[in-house]
Design a protein around this nucleic acid. Structure first.
Length: 865
RNA sequence: GCCCAGGUGGCGGAAUUGGUAGACGCGCAGGUUUCAGGUACCUGUGGCCGCAAGGCUGUGGAAGUUCGAGUCUUCUCCUGGGCACCA
C-alpha cells in the first residue's frame, strides 16, 4: 500500500527544479540553436488583483501547447507579462487612496505568485509590465516613428465622450451607444485628438484575412464585417440655389442603379449644409438640437423612429435635367459613414420607404423582380431589394442590377457628376485618453512651433508620481509642474501633451517586445526575425475585433518603420470558451458563493450555514456580481495544480464554454491518485533488459501503449484535449488490467514499465508535476526530467491490428459482427459474414442481389424476397 | 433585419470525415471491501418489447440522395454569439 500522492510537496519541488535547471528559458537570438522555433502566447492578463478561472483555463491551454512543442523538439518561446495600465487602478486611487502604481505592482506580485503555483512552462526572465517606463518608453519611441511615417496624426474630430469615465472612447469601445466600461450613454464632442490611420490599411487588413487559415473562421468573418468594405458611387447633386458657399451635396450610394427611383435627398443633422441652414432658420436649428438631445443611446432605443425636417432646399438630378428633389435632414443618416448624405429611393430601401410613408413623398419602383408584370408591380410596405430588371429608368432600362450599377457609374463619370468608389466602415483609431494611468503621448505643444515631438534622447516621458486624485479631471493636466517644459525646438515655454494612450496601444505590440524584452530599442530586429510571428495565440473571443485588429495594424506600421519584417503577428489563433458555474440565491434574494451552499442528491440545495432554502439559478459566466465564482487559489490548495489543469482539459472541447463543477474536480483528483497508485505499483518491479518474447497479456499492453501514443499525440496536435484525456483514461484502465494479469507471464514486467514510462510522458503537457513524480519513481537514479525528454514515438509494428471486427449488415441494418484478419480477401470476408449465426438465420429464404464489402469495416447484403 | 456557431443518453461530450452511434468522464443503480465514510474497487446504465436469443426504435423536425446518413442536399424549428438606421 502506497501513500496518497502528496501534491502539496511535489508541485513546489518540481517547480523549483524546473526553475533551477532553466528548463523553459530561451535566448533572444542564438544562431547555435538549430531547433525550429515555436512561439506560444496567451493573451497577457490585466493585473486586477487575483487570477480567475478564465486565466487558469487560458494558461493551461497554452502550457499544454508549449510543453508539447518543446517535447517535439521545438525551441519554444512562452512568455508572460502584464497589461498593467488602465482605469481600475485610477478608480482604486480615487476610492481608496492607493497610488495606481502601488496598487498595480502589488496586484502583479500577488498574481505572479498565483500563476507560478500553476506550474506553467514560462520563461519568466522575459516578464514585463506595460506600466514600466522600460516598456512604455519604447512605445513612445514607436509612436514617434509612426508619426514621422505618417501613421499618426492630430486632428479635430467628433469623438465619443464617456461622461462617467470622463474620457474619449474609440468607436470599437462604444457598445449599443454606451461606454464599454462605464455603461454610460456616450455623447458627441468635438476635440483635438491623436489618431492612428488604420483606415489607410483597411484594404490590406481585409485582404490578408484570407491568408490567416489557422484563425477561427468566425473571427475572420467578424473582422471582415468590422472593416466593412462596400462598393458604390459618389454622386454630386447640385443645389438649385447655393447655400452660402455650399453649391452641391455629395452622396454615397451602393445603388446607383436606382437613381431614377429617387424621391428625396437626406443629409445628417451633423452635415455642414444642415448647420448652414440652421444658421438662418430657427426651425431647422430646433430640429438639429432635438436630434442631438436624443443622442446615440435614445436613437438606439427608438431605432425604428424615422424623423426628418424639410430644409426647403432642392437639388438637381444628374440624369434628369428638368427634375429637382427636396433636401431633408434625417436622423437616420450618419455623418460618420459615407459622405453623411444619401439619396432616397424608397421603392428599394426599407429605411427610405419608412421615411416617405411618414412624410408623404412619392415611391417610384425602378427594379422589376424576375417574372413580375411591369404594368402592375407596386411597392406596398416592404421595399424590394432583390435582383431584377431595371425599368422606368431611361438608358438603364432592361439591364440587370449589376449591369445597371456599372452603366450608371460610367454615365456619372462621363458627365463629371460622380464616380465609382469603395467605402469602408472602419474608422481611424482615436488613441488620446484624458487619463493619468497610461502611457504619456510624447509630444510638446509650443505656441510658436506647434506640435513638437519629444526628442528620442529625452525618452521615456515618465509619468509623475505625485498626482492629486481628489479633484475630477485628468491629474496630469492638473499637475502644477509636470506639463511645463521648454520647447525642444525653440527653447521657449511650452506644454506637454497631457493625454495618454488608449491601453489598447500597449497591447498592440507586446507580443513583439517579448522577443527581446530588455532591448534598448522597441524590438531588436534579429530577435523579432527569430521568433515572430506568434505560432499559436490563445485567448478569449471577446478580443476578436479590437485587440487583434489593432495588433495587425501595428505590425504593418512596425514593418513600415523597420522594426519587424512581417505583416501578420499571429499565424495561429485559438479562441477559448468561458468558464461558467451555476448561480445560487438565498431565500432573501441575495446571491451566494458556491462554498456557502450544500448540494443535495436530488439536485436541490440548501445554505450551509442555517440550512435555508437556496434557488439554483442558471449556469453562466463566472462573475463577481452573481457570486458564482470559484477561487483558483483555493482549488490549487485543496487538490493541486495538476488536478485543476486536468479537470479543465477533460471537461469539454476548449473552444466551448465549460461548466466548473465540484464533482468534476473531485473526479479529476480521483484519477490523479489512481494513476499515481498504478505507476507506484510498477516502480517496485525489477528493471530488466527488454525480453525476446512477450506473452499475450504483455503484448496486449504493449499494443495499448503504442496506440495510446498515437491517439494522444493526434488529439493534442488538434486541440482535442478532452479526447486526449479520454485516451489516457483508457490507457490507465489497461495498466490496471495488467496489474491483475499473471505476473509470471513472459515480458509482462517489462511491458508494464514501458507503459508506466509512456503514461508519464503522455501526461507531461497536461499534468507536468505528476508526470515528473511518476518519472522519478520509475527512474530513481536517472536524474532526467520529463520537461527535458522527447515526446514518445509509437512503434508502427505495434499499431498494426491482428484482427478487425467487421460489421455485417442486411439492407444497411446491423445484424452481427465477424472477426477477420486485416485485409482479408473480400470473398473470405463475405463468406464469413454470410455464415454468422444471426446473419445466416435472417438471410435464409432471401435472394441476395448485391454484396457490398468495405475493407476492414463492413459487409452489407442487399436482398429481396 | 443581416452574419456566424451549435442542437447526439439524466449531464459534459466521442464518432477514423458516408461505414458497428453513444468512446471517455460525471451522475445514477446493484455488489465487494471498510468500525465508519463525500473512501477504494467490480458490474450495469439511450428508450420500448422480451426469461433469453433477439427484435423494434433512436443524433431538434420534415423531405431527399445512397446498399448504408449524426455526417451530404433542400426546407424548417430552437438555442447561443456577433453586427446593425452602414445608404
Amino acid at each position: 500500500m502506497t501513500a496518497d500522492y502528496d501534491f502539496a510537496s511535489a508541485e513546489p519541488h518540481w517547480q523549483r527544479i524546473w526553475d533551477e535547471r532553466g528548463c523553459f528559458a530561451v535566448a533572444d537570438d542564438d544562431p547555435g540553436d538549430t531547433r525550429t522555433k515555436y512561439y506560444v502566447l496567451e493573451m497577457f492578463p490585466y493585473p486586477s488583483g487575483k487570477i480567475h478561472m478564465g486565466h487558469v483555463r487560458n494558461y493551461t491551454l497554452g502550457d499544454v501547447v508549449a510543453r508539447l512543442r518543446r517535447a517535439q523538439g521545438h525551441a519554444v518561446l512562452h512568455p508572460m507579462g502584464w497589461d498593467a495600465f488602465g482605469l481600475p487602478a485610477e478608480n482604486a486611487a480615487r476610492e481608496r487612496g492607493v497610488h495606481p502604481a502601488d496598487w498595480t505592482w502589488g496586484n502583479i506580485a500577488h498574481m505572479r505568485a498565483e500563476l507560478k503555483r500553476m506550474g506553467l512552462s514560462i520563461d519568466w526572465s522575459r516578464e514585463f509590465a506595460t506600466c514600466d517606463p522600460a516598456y512604455y518608453g519604447q512605445q513612445q519611441r514607436l509612436f514617434l516613428d509612426f508619426l514621422r511615417a505618417g501613421f499618426a496624426e492630430r486632428r479635430d474630430a467628433w469623438v465619443n465622450w464617456d461622461p462617467v469615465d470622463g474620457t474619449v472612447l474609440a468607436n470599437e469601445q462604444v457598445i449599443d451607444g454606451r461606454g464599454w466600461r462605464s455603461g454610460a450613454p456616450v455623447e458627441k464632442k468635438k476635440l483635438s485628438q491623436w489618431f492612428l490611420r488604420i483606415t489607410d490599411e483597411a484594404p490590406a487588413l481585409l485582404a490578408a484575412l484570407d491568408g490567416l487559415d489557422r484563425w477561427p473562421a468566425r473571427v475572420r468573418q467578424m473582422q471582415a464585417n468590422w472593416i466593412g468594405r462596400s462598393e458604390g458611387a459618389e454622386i454630386e447633386f447640385p443645389l438649385d440655389q447655393p447655400e452660402g458657399a455650399i453649391t452641391a451635396v455629395e452622396v454615397y450610394s451602393t445603388r446607383p442603379d436606382t437613381l431614377f427611383g429617387m424621391s428625396f435627398l437626406a443629409i445628417s443633422p451633423e452635415h455642414p449644409l444642415a448647420a448652414a441652414v440652421a444658421a438662418r432658420d430657427p426651425a431647422t436649428a430646433a430640429f438639429i438640437a432635438e436630434c442631438r438631445r436624443l443622442g446615440t443611446s435614445e436613437a438606439a432605443i427608438e431605432a425604428a423612429e424615422k424623423r426628418g425636417h424639410d430644409t426647403g432646399l432642392r437639388v438637381r438630378h444628374p440624369f434628369l435635367p428638368d427634375a429637382s428633389f427636396p433636401v431633408w435632414i434625417a436622423n437616420f443618416v450618419l455623418m460618420e459613414y459615407g459622405t453623411g448624405a444619401v439619396f432616397g429611393c424608397p421603392a428599394h430601401d426599407q429605411r427610405d420607404l419608412d421615411f416617405v410613408r411618414r412624410y408623404g413623398l412619392p415611391v417610384v419602383p425602378v427594379v422589376l423582380p424576375p417574372g413580375a408584370d411591369a404594368a402592375r408591380f407596386a411597392i406596398d410596405d416592404v421595399a424590394y431589394t432583390g435582383p431584377g430588371t431595371i425599368f422606368h429608368s431611361d438608358f438603364l432600362d432592361g439591364l440587370d442590377v449589376d449591369a445597371a450599377k456599372r452603366a450608371a457609374i460610367a454615365a456619372l463619370e462621363a458627365r463629371g457628376s460622380g464616380r465609382g468608389v469603395v467605402n469602408w466602415r472602419l474608422r481611424d483609431w482615436g488613441v488620446s485618453r484624458q487619463r493619468y494611468w497610461g502611457c504619456p503621448i510624447p509630444v510638446i505643444h509650443c505656441a510658436a512651433c506647434g506640435i513638437v515631438p519629444v526628442p528620442v534622447a529625452e525618452l521615456p516621458v515618465v509619468l509623475p508620481h505625485d498626482v492629486d486624485f481628489s479633484r475630477p479631471g485628468n491629474p496630469l493636466d492638473l499637475h502644477p509642474s509636470w506639463p511645463n517644459v521648454a520647447c525642444p525646438s525653440c527653447g521657449g515655454p511650452a506644454r506637454r501633451e497631457t493625454d495618454t494612450f488608449d491601453t489598447f496601444v500597449d497591447s498592440a505590440w507586446y507580443f513583439a517586445r517579448f522577443a527581446s524584452p530588455h532591448a534598448a530599442e522597441p524590438v531588436r530586429r534579429a530577435a523579432a526575425d527569430r521568433w515572430l510571428p506568434v505560432d499559436q495565440y490563445i485567448g478569449g473571443i471577446e478580443h476578436a475585433i479590437l485587440h487583434l485588429l489593432y495588433s495587425r495594424f501595428f505590425t504593418r506600421a512596425m514593418r513600415a518603420t523597420g522594426h519587424v519584417g512581417l505583416d501578420e503577428p499571429f499565424a495561429g489563433l485559438f479562441t477559448q470558451g468561458m468558464v461558467t458555474h451555476a448561480s445560487y440565491r438565498a431565500a432573501d434574494g441575495g446571491w451566494l458563493y458556491p462554498e456557502e451552499v450544500d448540494l443535495r442528491a436530488d439536485g436541490g440545495a440548501v445554505e450551509r450555514a442555517g440550512g435555508g432554502a437556496v434557488t439554483v439559478g442558471r449556469v453562466e459566466a463566472m462573475s463577481k456580481s452573481k457570486r458564482n465564482t470559484v477561487d483558483p487559489g483555493a482549488i490549487i490548495a485543496r487538490y493541486g495544480a495538476d488536478t485543476a489543469r486536468w479537470f479543465i482539459l477533460s471537461d469539454n472541447p476548449p473552444e466551448r464554454d465549460m461548466e466548473w463543477t465540484e464533482t468534476g474536480v473531485a473526479g479529476a483528483w480521483r484519477f490523479v491518485r489512481r494513476l499515481h497508485r498504478l505507476v507506484e505499483a510498477i516502480a517496485v518491479l525489477p528493471a530488466a533488459p527488454k525480453p525476446d518474447r512477450f506473452g499475450a497479456a504483455a503484448t496486449a499492453l504493449r499494443r495499448t501503449t503504442h496506440r495510446s501514443i498515437a491517439a494522444v499525440s493526434a488529439a493534442l496536435d488538434s486541440f482535442a484535449f478532452n479526447v486526449a484525456v479520454a485516451r489516457i483514461h483508457e490507457f490507465a484502465s489497461a495498466l490496471a488490467d495488467a496489474e491483475m494479469a499473471d505476473a509470471a507471464e513472459p515480458g509482462l514486467a517489462w511491458a508494464r514499465r514501458e507503459a508506466g514510462a509512456t503514461v508519464a510522458l503522455l501526461i507531461g503537457p497536461m499534468m507536468p508535476h505528476l508526470a515528473e513524480t511518476l518519472h522519478a519513481a520509475l527512474n530513481p537514479s536517472a536524474g532526467t526530467l520529463i520537461a527535458e525528454l522527447p515526446w514518445p514515438e509509437a512503434d508502427p509494428e505495434l499499431l498494426e491490428q491482428q484482427s478487425v471486427t467487421i460489421a455485417v449488415q442486411i439492407m444497411g441494418r446491423l445484424r452481427g459482427t465477424v472477426a477477420m484478419p486485416p485485409d482479408a480477401p473480400p470473398e473470405a470476408v463475405i463468406a464469413a459474414a454470410a455464415s454468422e449465426d444471426n446473419v445466416a438465420r435472417l438471410l435464409a429464404g432471401k435472394r441476395i442481389v448485391k454484396r457490398i464489402h468495405v475493407p476492414n469495416r463492413i459487409v452489407n447484403f442487399v436482398v429481396t424476397g
